[in-house]
Nucleic acid binder design. Structure first.
Lengths: 327, 327
DNA sequence: ATGCGCCGTGTGACCGGTCACACTCGTCCT
DNA sequence: AGGACGAGTGTGACCGGTCACACGGCGCAT
């Protein structure tokens, strides 16, 4: 474009990157020409010249589960507002091949900066394998990913997990059982909060049951819990898990919250409309995503964008928790 | 790289694009050098030279709702397997500014090809506004988007909607009410199937209630239906809607499926674990996404990839439907 | 033996921006 | 008045691939 419409060609570049070294009227001249010719700079050319694309690509093991999808959504929104292109790259598994492919993919400078959603081993492995020269931050499980020096942003649900546990205890439950999801480790904030609250109250700490992302496995875990008459309160790794556990309870003839109280994690929209409405821990994943992008901007430019701290996780009490029967 | 490691430099390009005009041993030579030097071609440079990126960007009004997210997931998977980069661009609304911005974004050849998720007016507007020179296909509501000549892929749920309606009718319900979601139009396959089945059976066709994506609005619609003692069967626009409607029914003291039967759409994983498990129409959105990518490949290369037809929507009968009481 | 055509490879220009640097001009200082 | 300086602009090279074309060598037909 350019030369034709106004003056020269480097000047156009300067205007686009709004360099201060352009006289106001020259700038106007160029700007006019730009929208007269409907001119749009070519991102690929820019990336090539710059050495790195003005983009962010999100590496994630999953795109559909609530936590992942919301994080992605938060990132997309912020990135769009910041004028960055957004790419997505899924990692199939935590296996070496898959991790390597993902890393290779984002090692290309055309991928721009990287946000690794490291809620799980796949993401964590990618994060660790990332060459130091690719700018990246990570969204992680509370506590971060050992073995990486990257900036990590997370939602610390330790407090909320403890609150949830104390809430159940205060209702009169003897103890609280826990069904974990894959993204949780023994050291995770979720389990730490739960265990801490239990110990602090002198309540027994039951073994953790693990479920994978398939609701069926949560259902199976629920069946085992339902079979145990002593179980009266369950803290579930997420809302979907809670749903399946509740089903198992129902099939065993145990009412929620009459016989058993359950608490979820996430506060998926809709969970408020369950019957009974689910008591759960609200997680601000979208805020987490936005914070990741802000952190990236900080790394890249040094300037800290206005306070974009995600909301702290917090317990939302609804109908699925109540005092145990016969008390 | 290249020249250093083996022979020349254009040859490398030929090998990368596996041109047939390379002698096998030369190819080997280059290939060796490639993984010896850990060489990865630069996508931006390639895009610049080629005039268009080897990528697909998905334009969508939403990234979290089940239909949208699954479609995206199907696309991502296929694209990754095909070696394409994946971009995401959300359209805020169906307003002109937002649509224009999205269109400008994907008009840049660096965006590669485009898949527009046109389940709603925002997507449909983008599709219509897309310049003819950008290669694109669309995932649409059954029936397509009038005003565009693009290739459109959709899930035709007309049959399944009719099946669902007939299923309820055959259970003995006098008629079936319908709560619509935003992506539905009067002419949509969903409503056509529903209305058709009703008319065919000589059943009255009640007015359609509309809900937006907020579960609360579905809940409100549910309240209106719950207040009407004649309502005994409800076909909901999606599973989330069904959930909220069920809640309203519950609050009104009307049992599901004892007093009222409900059917959803989507078959979100987890819905099988509801209490009662939801009867719903399974929608293969991931398959739809894969089919979109295949269609794109067809447009671009002319060759038709092996049969990737999404599964047809089909009714999955579970526990939320039963004969009306007192019959 | 000569000439033609094809196969495989190298060369130069180009995609559309960026950077580093050179240049011109007007101001201000001495 | 002369020179230093800085603001604003233009020039050339480069990013890392692609395309179009030219070229050398070989097999084959004549």
């Amino acid at each position: 474009m350019a030369a034709a419409a106004g003056v020269s060609y480097q000047t156009v570049s300067r205007v686009l990157n709004d360099s201060p070294k352009v006289r106001p009227d020259t700038r106007r001249l160029v700007l006019d020409a730009i929208d007269r010719l409907q001119y749009r700079p070519n991102r690929a050319a820019r990336a090539l010249g710059l050495g790195r694309a003005n983009a962010v690509t999100v590496v994630t093991a999953n795109t559909m589960l609530y936590g992942y999808a919301s994080t992605l959504q938060g990132i997309e929104e912020s990135a769009r507002l910041a004028g960055l292109a957004v790419g997505v790259r899924a990692v199939e598994s935590d296996q070496d091949v898959d991790v390597r492919h993902a890393v290779e993919y984002v090692s290309d400078p055309s991928a721009g900066s990287v946000i690794v959603v490291a809620f799980d081993p796949a993401g964590a492995n990618v994060l660790r394998a990332l060459p130091p020269d690719v700018p990246a931050v990570a969204a992680t499980e509370a506590g971060g990913v050992p073995g990486s020096e990257r900036t990590m942003i997370f939602l610390d649900e330790r407090q909320a997990a403890a609150d949830a546990t104390r809430h159940l205890l205060s209702l009169g439950h003897r103890t609280v059982h826990h069904v974990a999801i894959p993204s949780e480790t023994v050291a995770s904030a979720r389990q730490a909060g739960w265990r801490g609250a239990l110990e602090e109250a002198g309540a027994p700490v039951p073994g953790v049951l693990s479920a994978d992302w398939d609701p069926r496995s949560a259902y199976l875990a629920g069946r085992r819990l339902a079979a145990d008459g002593d179980v009266t309160a369950i803290l579930c790794g997420n809302d979907d898990t809670a749903l399946a556990v509740r089903r198992a309870l129902y099939e065993a003839g145990r009412d929620v919250p009459g016989d058993v109280s359950i608490v979820g994690f996430d506060d998926v929209p809709g969970v408020a409309y369950w019957t009974p409405a689910l008591t759960t821990v609200r997680m601000d994943f979208a805020g987490l995503g936005r914070a990741c992008l802000a952190a990236l901007a900080t790394e890249l430019t040094g300037v800290v964008p206005p306070g974009v701290t995600p909301e702290a996780p917090r317990l939302v009490i609804r109908e699925s928790t109540a005092p145990p029967r016969g008390r």
